[in-house]
Amino acid sequence: MRNDIRERRAETGESQADLAASVGVTRQSINAIERGRYDPSLELAFALADHFDCRIEDLFDPEPDEG
């Protein structure tokens, strides 16, 4: 799943640790989400969207099917 969390975080000047603390997860979780290695739970996706004052659909976009 693609996301633009890194870009939004950069726009706000937040570190991964800052964002993690704001949404109640570890910095490693934020890193894994940004790198596309971990898809957040629905609860975390809502928390991230709330943090950035946007919709979940604005943050996350499923990759198109390859086939």
Results as ranks from 00 to 15, higher is better:
58 D>F: 02
14 E>P: 06
56 I>N: 07
27 R>Q: 08
5 I>S: 14
50 D>K: 13
18 D>T: 14
55 R>M: 08
44 L>A: 07
3 N>D: 01
32 A>F: 12
2 R>Y: 10
43 E>T: 07
34 E>K: 03
28 Q>G: 12
19 L>W: 07
62 P>S: 09
4 D>E: 07
30 I>P: 02
23 V>F: 04
35 R>G: 12
58 D>S: 01
7 E>L: 08
39 D>E: 15
38 Y>P: 01
11 E>Y: 10
40 P>F: 07
10 A>M: 13
65 D>M: 00
67 G>N: 10
16 Q>W: 00
35 R>D: 04
25 V>T: 08
6 R>N: 01
35 R>P: 02
21 A>F: 11
44 L>N: 08
15 S>R: 15
11 E>Q: 13
47 A>M: 01
53 D>K: 08
51 H>W: 14
20 A>P: 03
7 E>F: 05
28 Q>M: 11
16 Q>E: 03
41 S>A: 07
26 T>P: 03
59 L>P: 05
26 T>W: 00
5 I>T: 14
65 D>T: 01
49 A>W: 03
48 L>C: 04
28 Q>Y: 12
54 C>M: 08
26 T>M: 03
34 E>S: 07
27 R>F: 03
61 D>A: 06
24 G>D: 13
28 Q>H: 09
27 R>W: 00
31 N>S: 12
21 A>G: 11
52 F>H: 12
61 D>Q: 08
50 D>I: 04
44 L>K: 06
33 I>T: 09
6 R>T: 03
38 Y>E: 05
29 S>R: 06
24 G>P: 08
66 E>Q: 12
50 D>C: 09
14 E>C: 11
47 A>E: 09
37 R>T: 06
2 R>G: 10
15 S>H: 15
13 G>F: 02
56 I>A: 13
62 P>Q: 05
29 S>E: 03
36 G>I: 14
8 R>M: 04
25 V>M: 05
48 L>R: 13
